[in-house]
Amino acid sequence: MTTYKDGRRILSAPLSDDDLRSLRIGDIFYLSGTLTTGRDAVHRRVVEEGRALPVDLRGGVLLHAGPIVRPLEGGGWEMVSIGPTTSMRMEKFEYEFVKATDVRLLIGKGGMKENAARACRDFGCVHCVMPAGCAVAAALSVEEIVGADWLDLGMPEALWTCRVREFGPLIVSIDAEGRNYFEEKKAEYRRHKDEQLARLAKELAFRE
């Protein structure tokens, strides 16, 4: 479901197909609802060892992150700090991971490549990025940690399921058609680089 508040576009998880297909690369939005963290070790378990996730991610949200979590007196957990980790490390596993879990929104840091883009195209999934280095603001939009699974993987690698409110800003990096924002941008940056190198070569001929 999509709502608007103070000019902000807010999507609520679980996300409908319509929500997902309405997102285009470069779009900005915020997320309310439930998300689960998972990074390297979770991907390896699911893809390499073929294990089933203890969390139902169908139509759900996976955040590539290794949070700092503190146990609360009297049970439960508190989110101290949470920020996205580099999504590219999951690239190798992402097609199989999306296929196995039916997750529909991936959030991380930096772009992903063809394997993730193929998953987005084939399954109507979306990858987006959130600003890194903003761990305090992000932790404050976590209202409650509602699940902690695979804790044997250690705090950063475990599956933390969180109820979040207006989590973001999120920027769409790969949309459900498989268009890839960062790859398109990179081609642009490379073109600019060639122009700049030609200019610098002329300017920097220092002699004795």
Partner: peptide, 27 residues
């Protein structure tokens, strides 16, 4: 538009980190 939204998020985080006495980046 994108840079503006990002800077806004970065500055909000800086303010919150100072106010709540928490490290501004998780790393």
């Amino acid at each position: 538009a994108l840079p503006k939204v990002l800077y806004e998020a970065m500055f909000r985080n800086m303010e919150l980190a100072a106010e709540l006495s928490r490290p501004s980046c998780q790393d």
